[in-house]
Amino acid sequence: MDIRIIDAAAVTAAVKKLFMDCNYFIGSDIMCALETALHTESAPVAQSVLSQIIENDRIAAAEQIPLCQDTGMAVLFVEYGDKTAIDGCFEDAVQQGVREAYEEGYLRKSVVSDPVFDRVNTRDNTPAVIHTRIVPGDKIRITAGGKGFGSENMSAIKMLTPAYGEEGVKRFILDTVRAAGPNPCPPIVVGVGIGGTFERAAQLAKKATFRPIDTENPDPRYAAMERELLEEINQMGFGPAGLGGKTTALGVNIETFPTHIAGMPVAVNICCHAARHASTEI
């Protein structure tokens, strides 16, 4: 069997570039949605907020500076080809890439060493949260993003039971978005994970926020749910920056997984308009 050897330095370089790129350059899906929203809004405050966000994102890209000061906690989804081997330590290589991006890319270091007691800044934004899946092949595919906590803090998970059905799922998602209100820097992207176990639902919700908003769930029933939820959320009236308007969310992405006969976990991961993610293949 042929095994492809990948240099740890190549992993570090790829991860570094991903984090710098995603913090400077907003995705074209978000930019298009913001521009569409600008035409949809009629309230002057909502229009003004949207045009300032668009201008902000243009400045960040042109000057290669972070579009938001909260450059987030680093999260990576790795699809690791089973025909590859790393010349070095994969985990160390990834953390080193994060360290270099945050230090050399003028990104904010926002991670503390211990959640409850010490809360001392690690000064290099490590450790990153790494989700790894082993897949067939000889490539490593990485999707990475910096997750700001203004929106992360507004996320929620609930272990619904099957009797709640589609309506129960939708109600929980809408309740979570309503409770978040103006805080998570609307217009937001709503990532939803349904099914699996407690932790799988949360992971799917995060993954959903990393999916471009101009795509839809391949299952037409979930795609319809994405559209309906987006419409209902945009009737809530929070609007851009929470100052009122028709654009509270830019997109709703749902990801699913089979689940237990007794369960229907639903996780809602809220992401702000600074929905930063980038992908690469090594």
Binding site: V49, E55, N56, I59, E63, D70, P240, H273
Partner: peptide
């Protein structure tokens, strides 16, 4: 006062 969340590059100007 509210400033626009996520408009950090613009505000810094």
């Amino acid at each position: 006062f509210a400033a626009i969340g996520g408009a950090a590059a613009l505000i810094a100007k």
